[in-house]
Design a protein around this nucleic acid. Sequence first.
RNA 1: GCCCGGGUGGUGGAAUGGUAUACACGAAGGACUUAAAAUCCUUUGGCCGCAAGGCCUUGUGAGUUCGAAUCUCGCCCCGGGCACCA
Length: 804
Amino acid sequence: MTKYNPSKIEKKWQKYWEARKTYVTKDMVKGKENFYLLFEFPYPSGNLHIGHWYAFSVPDILSRYLRMSGKNVMYPIGFDAFGLPAENAAIERNLQPEDWTDQNIAYMTKQLKSMGATLDWSREVRTTDPEYYKWTQWIFLQFYKKGLAYRAQTSVNWCPKDKTVLANEQVVDGRCERCKTLVVQKEIAQWMFKITDYADRLLEGLKKVDWPETIKTAQENWIGRSEGAEIEFLIPNSKETIKVFTTRVDTLFGATYLVLAPEHPMVLKLTTDERLDKVNRYLEEAKKKSELDRLHLEKEKTGVFTGSYVVNSINNEKIPVWVADYVIGWYGSGAVMAVPAHDDRDFEFAKKYDLPIRVVIRPEGEWDFDKNAFVEDGVLVDSEDFTGFKSADAREEITEKLSVKKLARRKINYRLHDWVISRQRYWGVPIPMIHCEKCGYRPVADEELPVRLPKLEDYKPTSDGRSPLAKAKEWAKTKCPDCGRDAERETDTMDTFVDSSWYFLRYTDPKNKKAFADKAKMQQWLPVDLYIGGAEHNTMHLLYSRFFTKALFDLGLIDFDEPFTVRINHGVILEAGQKMSKSRGNVIDPDELVKKYGADAVRMHLAFMGPYDQGGPWNPGGINGVYRFLNRAWVMAQTICRKKRPAGTGAKELKTVLNKTIKKVGGDISDLKFNTAVSELMKLLNELEEKGADRKSFEQFLKLLSPFAPHLAEDIWQNVLGHKKSIHLEKWPDYDKKLIAEELVSIVVQVGGRARSVISLPADSGEEEVKKLALTDEKTKKHLASREIRKTIFVKNRLINFVV
RNA sequence: GCCCGGGUGGUGGAAUGGUAUACACGAAGGACUUAAAAUCCUUUGGCCGCAAGGCCUUGUGAGUUCGAAUCUCGCCCCGGGCACCA
């Protein structure tokens, strides 16, 4: 008998499938429904770790199952190949980023192919391919022409180490997401995408997609919509006003002072001469503190009085204007009305600086206003005509009254910022714009695309805030498309999240030279049926892709406006309690495991570990169990082939188990419950061993196993069982409903809610029959002895409970 | 602080109102072997008991129910998101 030798058979079948183009997906197959199964394309970091296998090989089980169930499945692969880490790694190794990236892709491709997945390599896309980024640039230009891409001077996040601008989403705890350096604010003119125009639609769209609640709430929080009003406070003897944003117009009568953020443009204008020194000193301190603040050193509120007053137009009261850094410059209008009786922050500040606290909302119960602000809704007091109103009504009425005088208006604020896409780094897509002294920024003509990234000997980032591309003088020199004068190309590159915001569209038509993808082909495949990826993209890639989809929809370029119908976040595999990463040096190398146990065992072990969305600690021990299981299947195949053993004594029960397993495994895979599907297969093999398998039931078992262990299944199918065609072209077995319905069922007998015995009866027996038999049962009798049955609970085919 | 997840044997986990601990891992004992590995068999939540059997057990305390890991409320712990957002 030949021994199970995974490394030998796996290579062989991988070549076989490749030669026969088994997994090259056609755009349409008659009679088959298309299914687009997508995972987040990898970043070419160097080599795969076990986390990549988890992300790519486990969904392959679903891909194979769907194929067998008659679906035309696309399971594509590509590389998100531009980006900072590759550039930094290349700098370290004194290589060109392009060479480093190509080298990594070559190595990872080899590794990926060893998984034995149904990946369609003929559709591979790379974001660094000019044929790809040509369309990244083209889409940018469409956005530009629609006013969705614009250039503006704003305060942006600057990473001093990576020497580039970062999007808000790339700043975590005040630090650069990549290198963990403290981010500073810098005033630079940058290209931006107007994602804020889509804030409401991005919220609205969440309602119609089947995504986990966690992602939906994360995106809702990130967008941070809040409804309220903008109210103007009058500056005496001036035409100017201070606008504040509030969600609590009902507390307007309780406003006892007004606070400006240190960055507010009116701060110095409102500061009186005698307060100028103090205010200036405070502004200086606030600037310094903002960096310390991010280290969470101190959070106590500080502020300073400007010396000026503004008028609250609801009651014509003069209230003092303070400057304090607990008010954020960029949110709302950078100014707030302070209502210390009804806001925790204002309360704390008022207590500290001895400012008046005026109660205007009463709770239903008792409240100690000396100790805490009452921040919930209630009934208005001391609010002139509005006294006695409920908070919600007062908000409406007061806003209405002030808007008549044009001193207030309904307003919705968002936490979401526009997306800053300029990067001052080399390894990215050049922004296809030209700067002319006379005409300003002009778009590159479509025929000129792609604007190729030039080769640069020295591509390192510079400290002056200019992109390294500025060093490519010849490349940058061009003519203005409008006036024909000498002009210069934009030298910033795009954030890599732009590249990845549309790659799933390209997979449908990766070689198209006339469009980013053919409309008919997109119609056949999109939106994506199931998208699998990591939670780190909840508020980045997933939000950006949704924005792109909506913008492209509005441009009439696609006919759907949500890209991913179903989304599942896979769990993270931890090593020593931490996420695996090269920098931590705790990566588990799949190649070694594959060498030792084979790809089939590695895949199946990953599937068996636990719920797919949960991840968890890497437990190398368990892989033995799966390997043993595969080995036992292998051994059984050999004996069946030789002996052609007929069905054993338990043949009928075996049939029932087999049919139940067919149903359960298929259902579990569809629900992405791979771990329980594996355990069902193990149970079935145990049964087959115990009862003695015939060739037919073994073949059924093998089909169920084939998505999990594709190489082993194929080898047995063709070499041992002698089939001429691939097992992966077989149909998923049907199950017989009649066989699943058991003839005899076990019914639990409970006495007083405690299980005391089990009796066996024909299925669907009625209460009387069950009761009769239960009462003759010895164990039951013992527990019922000298007790009175007060009530009987009967659940068909399950249990009977005697309440005593 | 607020918002999502989650807490079950020595370990990964199963069961989403009806026999808790399926399926594996590990461990212990045995068979085979000169020996080891591999393989196979047996045992394996805790406590009491020679056994039959009994009692206890799903972070914790209460509640609903004939019956709760599962539903409800309070508390503790772990993971993630947001966080001075007015």
